[in-house]
Design a protein around this nucleic acid. Sequence first.
RNA 1: CGGGGAGUGGCUCAGCCUGGUAGAGCACCUGGUUCGGGACCAGGGGGUCGGAGGUUCAAAUCCUCUCUCCCCGACCA
Length: 622
Amino acid sequence: MSCVCVVGRESLRALFMHRWSKLFIPTLREAPADAEVASHRLLVRAGYIRQLGAGIYNYLFLGQRSLNKIIAIVRQEMDKIGQEFYLPGILPKEPWVESGRWTGMGENMFRLKDRKGADLCLGMTHEEIMTSIARNELRSYKQLPQIWYQIQTKFRDEPRPKSGLLRVRQFTMKDSYSFDIDAAGLDKSFDLHDGVYRTIFTRCGLKFVVVEADSGSMGGSQSQEFMVYTEAGEDFIASCPVCGYAANLEKAISRLEPVTELEPTADKPEEIYTPGMGAIADIAAFLKMSPANDIKCVAYMALFKDWQPVAAFLRGDHDLNETKLLRALGAREVRFMTGEELALYMRGPAGYLGPVGLNIVGASKWKFTHEELLKGESKDVNPMGEIIAIVDHGLEGRKNMVCGANKLDYHLRNVTPGRDFGWTLLADIRSVNEGEGCPKDHCGGKLVVGKAVEVGHIFKLGYKYSESMGVRVLDVNGKEVTPIMGSYGIGIERILTAAIEQSNDANGFWLPTSIAPFAVVVTITNAADAALRETGEMLAAELEAAGLDVLLDDRDERAGVKFKDADLIGIPYRINVGKKAGSGQVELVARAKAASTDVAMGEVVAHVKQRVEEEQLLASSS
RNA sequence: CGGGGAGUGGCUCAGCCUGGUAGAGCACCUGGUUCGGGACCAGGGGGUCGGAGGUUCAAAUCCUCUCUCCCCGACCA
């Protein structure tokens, strides 16, 4: 019944074989009670990982094997555009002080002291270190461009680790850094990464989208995230099904429908008595108007060098986006005003806040102060109790609106922005909503919003680090110039997690062959049957010889147990060696489709190889 | 850091309110019967009940403090 000749059999026997009976693959019938997201439950059940602490995980045999495959793909693709380094995970304080991030990183950085009392930290990213290498070594434009990358462990003391491997305190990251002589060079390095990232995620079998993202607090001119849609994600993506526009909600914009303005009752603001109607829904119902006719006011304190009062104004039916607010202000941090601060700066209680009559910082004064604040030179923007008023674009050109009167139980109507109140800053500070118009000209599509997890991020850093840390090279004219930088990251574990999130069911998950710990599991349905075992061994050896990673399930378990385990642990193909083996047939099961086909034993290797090839073809064409 | 929940054999949980010799299912070991979708029978091993202190004749159970983990929020280069 064997199809292999004696000589072939002996040489196949010499091959190393992964026999399940000898391996440590601790599958669980039940998931730990504290695992909520699918990937977390399944990674634990499948024996890939075990939790050691909050956001700290042990990777066991299968988990590490899969991560190694992901790393191999990342390395293979990155080597096409960059050079692999390996920087330390434990870092001295000095470079961080130079860049200003020793304090800037705050609590998120793990810090420790050595025996001499010197400050050290665990690396959470490596801009500073790569930049210090550049500063010490790069001298001429002839050495540029450079792309340096590494695949390395990162440490971040997250305020709240969560969702299994999705947000952890120690993880593996591929981070790369580019150094170019000018912006055009940076564009090229950025595009190279964009291309390579697409290839990497495609090879890993991810259904990803590329979105515009917030470019960070400084100098970033362009920033892209690579996202995988999943309910377990922490980011929201707005996208247009018509033209393909896609952006992180922290960045997304939309086209607003015109609003029907209220009829004025006078040519100036007029107080109305609105007892107990602090909520916008109440006042809209009371005046029989749309919330879009209301001006929402959110009062913040923003941290520059000191805390400064900020009042943000936007349409009553819009939500404020704090990331956008932070960016528009150039502030380090924002928080809501306390009751006392409301009384001091707004002179009104929450629910009845409005822009009319506030002591607002003038736009010209702000511009000057803004620069100063960024440098940390100015201490006080409002000696007179002035407030920074930031108005959303959605209020531009609007008329006869309703807003709080800064007085308990009173609102104002006939309020027209520009006529009845001014502002310090006009900016985009709202989150777009599903159903709003696509911002692209002539598109006309309606935006949809979905949850996603970020697997990669590329962005143009500009001169932030090269400038602050003093990287200088000579250009063609012998003049000292500062190289421009880019920085690019991929979360290795997140690739695995995202792949599981996108392909799982009640019984387990399935990975693409490219990142699965094994391509195929050969299940000997009855290990007590010597003939079956022999057939399974030989078949597994043939598959292995054909270049496939094979797991041979030779355990002395009932068939049902083996099938359940095989379905659980993410291996894309299974070959059942069982009842039909006597007539030269085995079953080939594709986990993704849960579909089984009978194949002649002599053809099964070719079949599996063909399936794997089709899978890769499919991935690269999508 | 604010709010909520949970810590009892490896896993899932019961017991706690009303103090009185620590339990079940799964997993594990031995023997037997089974053998294509998480088998069955019999026997067996394994738990300072997160930790410390207190109340009591007696604490998994009541009280105080503390540690850890999970969820929501804040936060998230």
